[in-house]
Write a protein that binds this DNA or RNA. Sequence first.
DNA 1: TAGAGAGGCACC
DNA 2: AAACGGTGCCTCTCTA
Length: 600
Amino acid sequence: MRSLEYPIKGQAVRIHVVEAEDDLPDFESFILANQDLLAHDSETTGLDWWNAGVGTFRARLWQFGNAHESFVVPVEKGRAFRNAVRWALRTAHRLIAHNGTYDLHVAQQCLGIPMEELAPKSWDTKLFAHLVDPRAVKESGPGLKLEELTRHYICEAIAAEVKGSMAAIAKELKVKKDEVWPLVPIDHHGYLLYAGMDPILAFRLYKVLKSKVPVRSWQRGLVSWEHRLAHITAKIERTGYLLDRQYAEAKAAELARQQERWEEVARREGVDNVNANAQIIAALQQRGVKLTKKTKKGNVCVDDEVLTSIGIPLTEAIIQAKKAKKWKATWFDRALGGQDPEGRVHASINSCQARTARMSITGAVPAQTLPAGDSYVRHCFLAEPGHVTVSSDYGNMELRVLAAFSGDPTMLDAFHRGLDLHQITADAAGVDRKAGKGTNFTVCFGGGWKAIVEQYGVAEAEAKKAVKAFWETYPGVKRLADRLQREARRTGFIYTGTGRRLPVDRDRVYAALNYFIQSTSRDITARALIELDRAGYTEYVRLPIHDELVFSFPREQAAELAEKTARIMEMTVKGLLVPVDAEIGERSWGSVLDLEASKH
DNA sequence: TAGAGAGGCACC
DNA sequence: AAACGGTGCCTCTCTA
């Protein structure tokens, strides 16, 4: 057994490195002595846990620790070590981990412990951190990564050291940072230090954060609620989504041909690289084109709008080439590259991510940003053989949340009687429906008349009139917005109905209304996932996308299951129903869009 | 060579 | 008085 010592703020912590089977009794004694509360973490060869056993993925180390001490177990060295870790995970009464759903995937794939066995006793410091302060470092918050949280809550120097250590090893081994994980020798001092510190930091973070979680969040049961949700989204990740490989490959090839063709045109017209804005600007200015639009930072802007308005062969070629390249790389190549041995792709679902707790979905299926206007990309994703895709979405979720919580009589009346809220706003302002709709959404987002002009192409006078009319027509909304702004100005926070505390920047208190609406809406979808799980439907859920859930149901029971799940998803908020509409498609996700389009 | 910033674009 | 909220990903460019 090796033993490393490391100081945290002058106080030594000890990392024990299990090297041989003889060392395991000491490890087991440690686990038994600390079984009430143990932090853990795993080091792996990559992040593609779905390739365990068949591909290149494997677990290398597993670490356990408390505030002062940790044990590092080399699980890749053999069965005795894996057995010891398996036993330890099962023996612990409470497990702490940072972003622990990842380790649960690894435990299932590499150690054969079902996720469901460990999930109920697992607590995640990432969720605690979010409940304490959800702001990213960019937003002057603590962030949500272990290194960022260590810097903010524990010790700046340790954070810097931990962050730098794997980079230093990569440099030493002369490989890229992403390639270091499977290559670093299992007995490398820096690697063991990095690995051994992780559970110690997670344990300490847990201690710090749990006392900082707002009282109201504890009282409303938000802590356990978020954990339950995280384990449901982990199950959805594990299930994955069946990829139509032939389709994806065909479309990737088609886009590659298009890209090549349009790039050739652009080259003839004097632009070698369609993604280099400097080249585009030079080529256009040479032709005498005046470029007046500026970017946020004040530079010359050559976005889609500018290029479209110029409308010459060069700009057309740039638009088409860029689009083909981006779509191929972002949607088709990414999905094709993420397949598991069964041809399924696994999104990474961060169940509680944005400042408002909205989820984020990254990886092989960036579900939240798949083009929704047509079915071109969504045809990639298939319900299982004998199944069909069902997409169930909430109707007017955010505006209904606004109506319910503001109690505004005009807005509530409109929803209760099924009236057209966008038309009501339009009529009140004496503008057309498009401007009315734009006003409703923009005000929800905290915007003003300028935003309506830019986003919806409404004339300045009309937009000003519409915003004024909005606040006069819905005085209840005004009262809610004012109340939230006052609260934000006074305390720096607002609370949602679920007991979530959201920080609001004092120089942007107008954002408070949107935070409230967006976060409350997210919690309605989250509640649906939890209720669906209780009812045993999680195996059918493929993806959550804000106000929509995508399912794969057996064809014969699709209508019945769509109906049952829609009724579970629906929720009455302060007396107002947030309804759900379930669309039944064919096998591909894209087919839902096509069927919908053919109806209209 | 990696990271950060910026621009641009996909979405709710 | 007015105020556009929340994401992820790809590419280029500059810097350390």
